[in-house]
């Protein structure tokens, strides 16, 4: 089995260039770290971009409190290995402080609340750039995103009035109180990310490989079951062999029925799949412009 991965070098060179531009143009820099594969790839690229120096970023994790346990362990191990600072923003704190009202009901999720916590942390710590693993192929609003994406003093994105971005010249100029979101892997697809993980031998949390888990079906998406989740009467919890295609808050991360044990098996599966990875993300199913609306509010 051979995979055409020549283009990965060009994507990597581009991403490393962007990482270095971030280092040169900003002061208080963080990588948004979710424990998902995209943020793990970002960390790998940052390592490569500044070797043998330590990467000039802290890792920022916005913690909804509804995590897959494996994610937190993976995060802590990684931070120890890198020797960088870890900043954790707790959504629970924002709720306790009355900064955000928690959703209730069957589809309750803290996904949207994360934006409030994220912007609070950015503001409190004077962060002027947050590097994220967003990719343009993920979602149609993301397809309009710049590499260097400006956020106003309210942390908002104005998609209709973005700065033109030409060649490889990135304009990170901003006024006090504003910040940037930067997406070095904008041009990567899901398949590129997996091929790169294989090529670079990057270690991922076990959640991405097949494992036995309690799940249930909701609106055509398999969700991992956790004790705090409310079920509808018709929803039944059962065990199955699954893996995650994306990892986010447990309440809205769909899982895929799969027996893939190795990266090669995962890549074959993805290459043949007929559903986008965000097709399994419950947070995107709320409305046609769900992602655009959240991004305008300051979402990742």
């Amino acid at each position: 089995m051979k995979i055409n991965d020549e283009h990965l070098k060009e994507l990597e060179d581009e991403a490393i260039f962007v990482m270095r531009e971030v280092a040169a143009q900003f002061e208080r820099k963080v990588i948004l770290f979710s424990g998902g594969k995209d943020s793990i790839v970002l960390v790998h690229l940052a390592k490569k971009a500044f070797w043998p120096a330590k990467m000039p970023f802290s890792l920022l994790h916005i913690d909804t409190g509804h995590n897959f346990e494996e994610t937190l362990k993976f995060r802590d191990d990684l931070v120890r290995e890198l020797g960088v600072e870890l900043i954790v923003g707790l959504v629970q704190d924002s709720i306790d402080e009355g900064r955000v009202v928690e959703e209730t009901g069957i589809n309750a999720s803290r996904n949207k609340a994360q934006s409030v916590t994220l912007l609070d942390v950015i503001d409190r710590l004077g962060i002027d750039v947050a590097v994220g693993g967003g990719r343009r192929d993920e979602e149609k609003a993301r397809a309009k995103e710049r590499f260097f994406s400006h956020r106003n003093e309210f942390g908002q994105w104005d998609p209709k009035n973005q700065r033109p971005e030409l060649w490889n010249i990135f304009n990170g100029h901003k006024n006090f109180g504003e910040h940037f979101r930067v997406f070095p892997i904008s041009n990567w697809t899901e398949l590129d990310v997996w091929q790169y993980i294989l090529r670079e031998n990057i270690i991922l949390p076990g959640l991405y490989y097949t494992h036995r888990r309690k799940i249930f079906l909701r609106n055509g998406v398999y969700l991992a079951w956790a004790p705090f989740m409310q079920l509808k009467p018709s929803e039944k919890v059962f065990e199955a062999d699954v893996r995650c295609r994306t990892i986010g808050d447990i309440t809205c991360t769909g899982v895929t029925l799969s027996k893939a044990q190795s990266l090669k098996e995962i890549i074959s599966e993805i290459a043949a799949t007929r559903v986008t990875e965000r097709g399994g993300r419950y947070d995107d199913k709320r409305s046609e412009a769900a992602m655009e609306d959240r991004k305008k509010e300051g979402y990742f």
């Binding site: 343009r136 149609k140 609003a141 397809a143 209709k160």
Partner: peptide, 18 residues
């Protein structure tokens, strides 16, 4: 990709496809 684009049936900004 943007709400305004779908509503107005026009494309406002460069979109990248893969």
């Amino acid at each position: 990709g943007l709400r305004a684009e779908r509503e107005q049936g026009i494309t406002i900004d460069v979109a990248y496809r893969y």
